[in-house]
C-alpha cells in the first residue's frame, strides 16, 4: 500500500472497476449498431429486437469478461441498485422522452401525420440515449459518458429541427453517429486496459 491512504479513491476505483476494460462501451456501441440495422430492415422489429439484443448480448459480455477482465484484475460483481428505483427511474425517463416526442409531433404537424412521427424519432432517440449515458457517467465516473449524453441530445434535436420526416433515415444516422465515438472510446479503453493489466497467475487465491 502507498503511504497516502485515500479511502475515497479506493472506494471509487472499486466501484468503477467494471468500466475500465471498455467492454460495456463496446457492447453499447454494438447495441446501437444493431438498432440502426433494425431500423433500416424493419422499424416494427426495433422494440422486440432491442430487448433480444440487450438480454443475450449481456451474456456475451459476461463471457468475455471471464476471459479478458477477471484474469487481469480479479473477479467481482457490481453492487446492484434497488430494482424498484431503477425500474421506476427508467420508466419515468422513457415516459418523459415519449412525452417530448409527442410535443414535437404536435408542434410540427399533428398526431395523425406519419411524417411528423418519423421526423421526431431522432429526438426521442437522442433524449433517451442522453439519459442512458448520463446514468452510465454517474456509475463509471467518466466525463466522456456525460459528454456523449449531451452530444446525443443535441444531435437528436438538430436532426428533428432540420429533418424532413420522409423516412427513418435520420434516426439511423443518429444511432450510427452516437455508436461511432462510443465504439472508439471502448476500443481505446480495452487496448489501454490490456496494456496496463497483464494476466495474473491463476493461483493468486486466498
Amino acid at each position: 500500500m502507498s503511504d497516502r491512504f485515500d479511502v475515497a479513491g479506493i472506494e471509487e476505483r472499486a466501484r468503477t472497476a467494471g468500466y475500465r476494460d471498455g467492454l460495456i462501451e463496446l457492447f453499447a456501441a454494438a447495441v446501437l449498431l444493431s438498432l440502426a440495422v433494425l431500423w433500416v430492415a424493419s422499424p416494427a422489429l426495433v422494440g422486440i429486437g432491442s430487448a433480444f439484443i440487450v438480454l443475450y448480448g449481456w451474456k456475451v459480455v459476461e463471457r468475455v469478461k471471464q476471459r479478458v477482465t477477471y484474469p487481469r484484475i480479479g473477479y467481482f460483481q457490481e453492487r446492484p441498485e434497488a430494482p424498484d428505483s431503477t425500474a421506476r427511474g427508467m420508466l419515468t425517463f422513457i415516459g418523459l422522452s415519449f412525452g417530448l416526442m409527442v410535443l414535437a409531433v404536435l408542434f410540427s404537424g399533428g398526431l395523425g401525420d406519419a411524417a411528423s412521427w418519423r421526423r421526431a424519432a431522432p429526438l426521442m432517440s437522442g433524449v433517451t440515449l442522453a439519459g442512458a449515458f448520463w446514468y452510465m457517467g454517474d456509475r463509471s465516473g467518466f466525463a466522456r459518458h456525460k459528454v456523449l449524453a449531451v452530444y446525443s441530445a443535441v444531435t437528436g434535436l438538430l436532426l428533428w429541427v432540420f429533418g424532413s420526416g420522409e423516412s427513418y433515415e435520420a434516426v439511423v444516422w443518429h444511432l450510427l453517429g452516437v455508436a461511432a465515438p462510443l465504439a472508439a472510446a471502448g476500443t481505446w479503453g480495452l487496448v489501454r486496459f490490456l496494456h496496463t493489466h497483464p494476466v495474473q497467475e491463476t493461483s493468486a487465491d486466498g
Binding site: M1, A14, A17, Y70, I73, Y75, E78, R79, A204
Partner: peptide
C-alpha cells in the same frame, strides 16, 4: 487498521469479489 479498512471499503463498493480483485484494489501483499 488501514489494510483492513481498505478491504472493507472495497467490499462495500461491490457485491462480491475474489482474492485477486482485493489485492489489485487495496495494494496489499497476498
Amino acid at each position: 487498521e488501514p489494510g483492513r479498512l481498505a478491504v472493507l471499503v472495497v467490499l462495500s463498493a461491490v457485491e462480491e469479489a475474489d482474492f485477486l480483485f482485493l489485492t489489485e484494489q487495496t495494494g496489499l501483499t497476498k
